[in-house]
Amino acid sequence: MTFSWKRVNAIFQKDLKDFSRNLAVSVVVFLPLILALFNGRAGENTITGHFMTINIAFTLIATYVQCCLIAEEKEKNTLRGLMLSPANTLEILAGKSLLSFVLTIIVIFFSAYLSGYNPPNIWMISMAIILSSIFYIGLGTLLGLVAKSVMDSSVIVLPVIGIFSIGSFVLLLVDKYPILKIAEYLPNVQLIELAEKIEVGAEFSEVLSNLGIISIWVIAVILLTIVVYRKRMVD
């Protein structure tokens, strides 16, 4: 079956209208922005500070919003209608992810602007951010498919917010508990590491390992999502 942008666009526009009228979920969009504003005004100007807001934006918008969008389709019994339509799996997932992707990028752009983050190599940072947002959206889709309702999804997403937004502080404890070294491979920690390297003027080849690790996370989460989606389709 051919991939049709018209159908993806139809789902995107429907979600946009639906989302803008759903205040309970759409209000989280402003949270990273407010945080960024405080950070910027307080003169906090470290990479960790900037990426704290960016990681919160990832978990809240890419993961939480995506999770709610998918869970709501399931709860209201509309996902079945979508699955029965001519749209195929890829189109449905792409259409459902497009809104959270666009929102994430916009919010990160503005929060970077508000907190005064100005990376020397903007292209490499944007690439890393786009790659990470795909990972977080994939994670959100996965959780949305597992959650039974919107209520469920806001609970399920809590540990994710915990691990991926504040998780970077775990590194401070690595000297004490060597087991926590695993945390270095988390995509958020990798993103911060990458940003720090770029800040001191690293070349593309130097950050390749960080991008590689994030890509592995992306591929893993996409595969898992497709497996779970197929399984849910049969139920």
């Binding site: 018209k6 139809a10 789902i11 526009q13 429907k14 209208k17 639906d18 209201k76 001519p86 749209a87």
Partner: peptide, 30 residues
């Protein structure tokens, strides 16, 4: 794909208006 189903408990997108809902289905089914 050729069958159209009218379920007893089917969901509709509650926050859309009737017109928007139909426009969405029109685009989705082309």
């Amino acid at each position: 794909k050729r069958l159209a189903f009218f379920f007893l408990n089917d969901g509709l997108y509650e926050r859309l208006s009737v017109n928007e809902l139909l426009k969405f289905y029109q685009q989705l089914y082309q």
